[in-house]
């Protein structure tokens, strides 16, 4: 069984590097803001006993008040998982640091989110549309984009 990492373990490994006000827990997920995202990923990727070496998926959700980017990590070595959420309250110019330098698997998924949600990933090596063509009007997966247009 792939188990969810418990709060104690996460707290234990994060407390030296990240201040405890920068992240919180919501049911099974860790919620943070874009400023501490990369730091948290770096720590969790290498912390002994945690070693989240596999980024399973990155996706985004358009909530009325904010964009939420959801990361799902596994550790292949220890067979546990972690869901990490980053909220981005600025709906006009959403941006979030890219974790592609850490996890190559994030590359296309971040481009996909950029394409379909319009969230910019700062310092992504090649932030261009992936599915739609350059100059396509709008970002279809946003809620204000009609379904049948």
């Amino acid at each position: 069984m792939t188990i969810k990492l418990s709060r104690e373990i996460i707290n234990h490994s994060l407390h030296e590097h990240v201040s405890s006000t920068d992240y919180s827990f919501e049911s099974e997920a860790v919620v943070t803001d874009s400023a501490s995202l990369v730091k948290i990923c770096e720590v969790l990727k290498s912390a002994p006993g945690i070693e989240l070496d596999y980024l399973s998926s990155v996706t985004a959700v358009d909530y009325p008040d904010y964009f939420e980017v959801v990361y799902l990590f596994y550790s292949i070595k220890h067979n546990h998982s972690l869901t990490l959420k980053v909220r981005c309250p600025d709906k006009q110019q959403p941006d979030i640091p890219s974790i592609t330098p850490l996890y190559n698997g994030a590359n296309y998924q971040e481009r996909e989110i950029y394409d379909l949600f319009g969230i910019s990933f700062v310092s992504h090596p090649k932030l261009r549309r992936i599915f739609l063509w350059e100059g396509y009007p709008g970002h279809p997966l946003r809620k204000d984009y009609g379904i049948g247009s």
Partner: peptide, 8 residues
């Protein structure tokens, strides 16, 4: 390593 890092 590359396979794991690239989410294969």
């Amino acid at each position: 390593e590359m396979a794991i890092n690239s989410s294969i």
